[in-house]
Design a protein around this nucleic acid. Structure first.
Length: 437
DNA sequence: TCTGGGGTCCTAGGACCC
DNA sequence: TCTGGGGTCCTAGGACCC
C-alpha cells in the first residue's frame, strides 16, 4: 500500500461544472429540467448543452438552425452571464469554506489545494475532495466533474475522465496507465500548433510527453511552457494553486463583430467608441484605471491592425481615451478595406487609490468629469446599459438597433427571459442560495 | 566608427485557455 | 471547424544604457 505522501506530494483537486451554463438555466427554471437545453441563442450557435441535449448528439458550436432541425424539442435560450457568474462565485465561496487555497480558474472551474487542509481535518485527500464535491452539489444543484492528482495539469486531466458527476483519483502510481490513453492534443496547454509540432516528433499521447527527459527538450529547443507541462504530467508539481489568478485582473477588453463588414470610417470609429465605453465601465465597476491601451481593427480576412499607447496618467473615462484614439486611428484604418470587428483592451491596471491624478490633488475639471461618470454609471445601472453613451458611439447604437429589429424570430421561448427587442431588460431570477458556513 | 560584452525595459505578436 | 467574446502568458527583438 503506497504512502499518501508518495502518491500525492501535493493533493490538487480540480472542479469542473457539468454542462455549467445549461445546468444553471435548469436550476433557475424548473420547467427546463429533464429537457434538452441549449444556451447561446444570442449568438446563433450552441455554447453549452444539457445532458439531455448532448444525448441527442448535439454539441458546442452547432448552429441553432441545425439544432432545431436535429432536435425540434430543444429549448434554446440566450446566455445569462450574470447568473452564471453568480453561480461561479458561489462555487469559489463554498470551496473556500474548506481551505483558502482556491484558485478561481474560470467561470465554472476552480483548483483547490487540499494537501494540508485534509490532514488538519483528519481525513484522507480522497475523502476531503469528495466532501467538497457533495457540498457544492447540495448548495448549487449542479454536478461537477472532479479530479484529484499531485499536480494541476493531472487534476485537470482527471476531472474530465468521468464526466458528468465523477470523482477521479490520479495518484502517482496510476499516472502511466492513465496518460497512455490521453491523446496529446487533449492536454491542457497543448493547442493546435504545439500538438502538430509534437506529433511530428512522434509524441502521440500525454504519456509520451511525460517520459521525455530534459535533454530531449534541449535538443529540440522547446520553450518553458512545454517543459513545465512535461514535468507536471510526470507528477512533479510546478504550478501552484492560487499563484496566478488569485486576485485582481491584468486587463479588460471589449470587442464586437458586426455583420455585414464595413469600410465606413465613421461607423468603425463609432464601434471603437462603443467598445471603449464598455471597457471603461468594467474598469470603473472594479474601481480601477488603466495606464495603457490597445485598439484594433480586424479585417474580413481575419488580420489584425492594432495600435498600442501609454497614457501619462491612469484613466478610466472614455472621452479622454477616445481623444487619444482619434489621433492615431489613421494608423489602422485603410480606405476601401472591409473590416468585420473592432476591439479595445485596457491594461497596466492600477487601483483608483493608487492613481492620484496629480501631485496637487484633483483639479476642478477632473472633479467634474468624475461626477458626470458616476452619473452615467448610475443611469446605466438604473435604466439598462445602453441608456447613456458618448455622442461618438451613436452611429454604432443605431446600427445595433436596426440589427435587432431585422432579426426574424425571438431567440427565447421564455418571455420573462427575453432579451431581444429594444429597451426590454433581461430579467434575472436568481434563487436565494443559502448562507455559506 | 563596423567594433565588445552584457544588462534591462518595452513592445508586438503568437499561442493557448474557457 | 471559415471562426464569438474575454482573458493570460511567453518570447523575440529593438532601444537604450554602462
Amino acid at each position: 500500500m503506497p504512502d499518501a505522501r508518495d502518491e500525492y506530494p501535493r493533493a490538487i483537486v480540480h472542479f469542473d461544472g457539468d454542462s455549467f451554463f445549461a445546468s444553471v438555466e435548469q436550476m433557475l427554471d424548473w420547467r427546463l429540467r429533464g429537457k434538452p437545453v441549449v444556451t447561446g441563442g444570442e449568438r446563433g450557435a450552441a455554447t453549452s448543452l444539457s445532458i439531455e441535449a448532448k444525448r441527442r448528439g448535439l454539441h458546442r458550436g452547432v448552429p441553432m438552425q441545425e439544432i432545431r432541425r436535429l432536435a425540434p424539442d430543444a429549448v434554446i435560450v440566450p446566455g445569462n452571464y450574470t447568473a452564471y457568474s453568480i453561480f461561479g462565485k458561489r462555487m469559489y465561496e463554498i470551496a473556500r469554506v474548506f481551505t483558502p487555497l482556491v484558485e478561481e480558474y474560470s467561470i465554472d472551474e476552480c483548483f483547490v489545494d487540499v494537501t494540508d487542509a485534509a490532514v488538519a481535518a483528519g481525513m484522507s485527500h480522497e475523502a476531503y475532495a469528495a466532501a467538497i464535491k457533495v457540498k457544492l452539489q447540495e448548495s448549487l444543484g449542479i454536478t461537477f466533474g472532479v479530479g484529484l492528482a499531485p499536480t494541476k495539469t493531472l487534476a485537470k486531466v482527471a476531472s474530465k475522465l468521468n464526466k458528468p458527476d465523477g470523482l477521479t483519483l490520479l495518484p502517482r502510481s496510476r499516472i502511466d496507465e492513465t496518460l497512455a490513453g490521453i491523446p496529446i492534443h487533449d492536454v491542457w496547454g497543448i493547442g493546435g500548433s504545439m500538438s502538430m509540432a509534437l506529433k511530428g516528433l512522434g509524441i502521440e499521447t500525454a504519456l509520451d510527453l511525460a517520459r521525455k527527459p530534459r535533454a530531449w527538450m534541449d535538443e529540440h529547443r522547446f520553450a518553458k511552457p512545454v517543459r513545465v507541462l512535461a514535468l507536471e504530467l510526470a507528477g512533479v508539481p510546478v504550478r501552484t494553486v492560487g499563484g496566478e489568478h488569485a486576485h485582481g485582473f491584468k486587463s479588460v477588453m471589449h470587442t464586437r463583430t458586426f455583420t455585414p463588414p464595413s469600410s465606413d470610417r465613421a461607423f468603425l470609429f463609432a464601434q471603437l467608441s462603443k467598445n471603449l465605453e464598455a471597457a471603461c465601465v468594467k474598469l470603473r465597476r472594479r474601481g480601477a484605471r488603466a495606464c495603457t491601451a490597445t485598439f484594433y481593427l480586424k479585417t474580413q480576412e481575419f488580420t489584425y491592425h492594432s495600435v498600442q499607447m501609454t497614457f501619462h496618467v491612469p484613466l478610466n473615462d472614455p472621452s479622454s481615451i477616445l481623444e487619444l484614439f482619434s489621433r492615431r486611428f489613421h494608423e489602422v484604418f485603410a480606405p476601401g478595406i472591409l473590416y468585420r470587428a473592432t476591439g479595445v483592451t485596457l491594461h497596466t491596471i492600477v487601483p483608483n487609490e493608487a492613481a492620484m491624478p496629480s501631485l496637487f490633488g484633483k483639479s476642478a475639471e477632473e472633479e467634474r468629469r468624475e461626477r458626470s461618470l458616476a452619473c452615467v454609471d448610475f443611469l446605466n445601472k438604473r435604466w439598462g446599459n445602453d441608456s447613456v453613451f458618448l455622442g461618438s458611439t451613436l452611429l454604432a447604437m443605431r446600427e445595433r438597433t436596426d440589427l435587432v429589429r431585422s432579426r426574424a424570430k425571438p431567440v427565447s421561448r421564455r418571455r420573462n427571459f427575453l432579451s431581444c427587442g429594444e429597451g426590454s431588460k433581461k430579467c434575472l431570477g436568481i434563487p436565494f442560495l443559502g448562507k455559506v458556513r
